[in-house]
């Protein structure tokens, strides 16, 4: 079944500050789409609009999942999660005083995920063997890289159709960033996910991207139909590669 996100002319802001100006993008079934941009350009705000944390003031966000199409505007985060979208939030947002396993079990809170909880737990423990070793440890006492593993594993526990990943590189050492990004790609292939990743680390994000968008001051300034198109774009050379 095809899963996709269609974002059309989304406007959003905080109070009188506008952040997104008519943003449109598509995330098609089975793709890994990256949303590139440096801090403060609206990446996270767009992710928050998709997950219902911020309500857009205009536009449409359509989710196609299991053959039906739903407009996400006006829905609460818990309703959106119930539809099959999972978010690995920026800063991870684990429950620090709960154990790793309790965090993972909470990931399976959504009704549709409860039936396959045993298999999913086994799946994430196989994907991240470190988490099996640390199952009883409090999440807040783990290193940044391990916490990011918990955050990704917790999102997968909800059996998402569409996985959103917000800034997975924040606070991680470069070697861990590249491992985490590779892991996301691997998990995406194993679980047939559709992935939208917001990231400022261009060189890392581009490694797993099928396509990408560049957002500048709340506008989509460039749409790259392939990783190469992104790599060879003038603006990217200017912004990221210093050329």
């Amino acid at each position: 079944m095809a899963n996709s996100l269609t974002i059309r002319n989304v406007e959003a802001g905080y109070g009188s500050v506008r952040v997104l100006y008519g943003v449109s993008m598509d995330v098609n079934d089975g793709e890994t789409v990256v949303l590139l941009g440096s801090n403060g350009n609206g990446k996270s705000t767009l992710i928050k609009c998709i997950t219902g944390i911020v309500q857009p003031s205009g536009g449409e966000i359509l989710l196609s999942v299991d053959g039906q199409q739903v407009n996400l505007i006006g829905k609460s985060p818990e309703e959106i999660v119930d539809l099959g979208i999972a978010l690995v939030p920026e800063g991870r947002r684990l429950f620090p005083a709960l154990s790793v396993e309790e965090n993972l079990m909470l990931g399976a809170y959504r009704k549709a995920a409860r039936a396959r909880i045993e298999e999913n737990l086994e799946f994430v423990y196989t994907a991240f063997p470190r988490l099996r070793e640390r199952a009883g440890q409090l999440a807040g006492s783990m290193s940044g890289g391990e916490q990011q593993m918990v955050a990704v594993a917790r999102a997968l526990m909800s059996e998402p159709r569409v996985l959103l990943v917000d800034e997975p590189s924040v606070g991680l050492a470069p070697i861990l960033v590249s491992r985490m990004i590779a892991k996301i790609k691997e998990l995406k292939d194993e679980r047939n996910l559709t992935v939208l990743m917001a990231e400022q680390n261009f060189n890392q994000a581009i490694k797993i991207a099928d396509r990408g968008y560049i957002i500048v001051h709340g506008h989509i300034e460039f749409e790259g139909e392939s990783a190469d198109a992104l790599r060879n774009n003038e603006m990217i050379r200017e912004y990221y590669l210093g050329a």
């Binding site: 944390i53 985060p77 818990e78 999660v81 939030p89 947002r93 809170y109």
Partner: peptide, 8 residues
């Protein structure tokens, strides 16, 4: 907020 993101 994280709990909302779990669907609760």
């Amino acid at each position: 907020l994280a709990l909302q993101l779990m669907g609760a």
